[in-house]
Amino acid sequence: MPAPRTVLLTGAAGGLGTLMRGLLPAYGYDLRLFDVRPVEGAPDGAKVFTADLTDRDALREAVHGVDAIMHLAGISLEAPFEKILRSNIEGTYHLYEAAREEDVRRIVFASSNHAVGFTPRPQGTPVPSESLIPVDTPRRPDTYYGLSKCFGEDLAQLYADLHGIDTVSVRIGSCFPEPTTVRMLSVWMSPADGARLFHAALSAGTTGHTVVYGSSANTRLWWDLSGARALGYEPQDDSEPYAAALIAAQGELDPDNPAHANLGGQFCTEPPVWPY
């Protein structure tokens, strides 16, 4: 499948969306931007849609004529179920319906490690390859937010089987300019590696629904990146240069602490809550 040129980026005003707005055009993509909030700093001439995912008319207009969709929109922390339902569950359904109606055949869905957040984290540094968490590990969401990502993955599978829409669901770790916690040393994805992975997911010749983990090639990696590599992803970065300072400030992870013992970290105990 040739690399699509016109890509609808939902969640374009968010943290990850802002990073990808700056990085993906270098791969040849013409980005169309969608967010419920105004997209500050959008390039001159960019098509920008300011609307909610439940606005089906606006969503269908935004989807019309694109080659692929990168779906980053939605609530990215824990929130009351009613808010998660509207934004992450109903909103993702509306997106897939718009894709079906407009015959868009490739979606990259921003899933999350929190879909499997109660999976015990593997031990060791580095973790032996046979102990890395596989993508087919049973889903164990740690929050309503994580539950919404399980729904998104199942919805992607349904639309692949029923309507022939390809999806790559990327279980993202933490995509920031640099890791900020000891846990993040294992799940960090540099913005540059994020762009490499999303480009691979947008352009790979896969069919159906594929789930991969999204992180850099960290020395302290907890999960199996072989699925992402099979798409053509070649991570270039490693969190290890940040390890000494973070461990000195925060200490090593304590396996007896529930916030350290499971993949989802703090989401398994007192998850950060969406502010509205």
Rank of each mutant, 00 (worst) to 15 (best):
A58G: 03
T50W: 12
L85W: 14
H71C: 01
H64A: 14
E78M: 10
A46D: 10
A98H: 06
V48E: 11
E97H: 12
T50D: 05
I75S: 09
A58E: 01
A73V: 09
D67T: 09
R56V: 14
I107H: 02
Y93C: 07
A99V: 09
A58W: 01
E82L: 12
R106C: 05
N88F: 04
S112Y: 05
A62P: 02
E90Q: 12
A58K: 02
H94D: 15
L95Y: 01
F81V: 07
L85C: 10
L95V: 08
F118W: 15
D103E: 13
E101L: 13
A98G: 10
I69R: 01
V104Q: 06
V63M: 04
V108D: 00
A73K: 03
F81K: 05
F109K: 01
E90C: 07
R100T: 11
P80Q: 07
E101P: 08
V116Q: 15
E82H: 13
A79R: 02
A110N: 00
A46M: 13
N113E: 15
H71N: 04
V108N: 00
G74Y: 02
G117E: 04
L53K: 05
S76I: 07
T119F: 04
D57N: 09
R106E: 03
D44P: 13
F109T: 05
P120Q: 06
Y93P: 03
E97L: 13
T119I: 07
T92I: 00
Y96V: 00
S76G: 05
A98K: 01
I89D: 06
A42P: 02
G45D: 11
I75C: 11
D44A: 14
K47L: 14
A58T: 01
S76W: 03
A51E: 02
V63F: 00
G41C: 09
F81H: 05
I84C: 01
A110K: 00
V48S: 10
G117T: 08
G117C: 12
P80N: 06
H64Q: 15
D103H: 12
G65Q: 09
D55A: 10
M70F: 13
A68E: 00
L59V: 07
P120K: 06
L95T: 02
D57R: 11
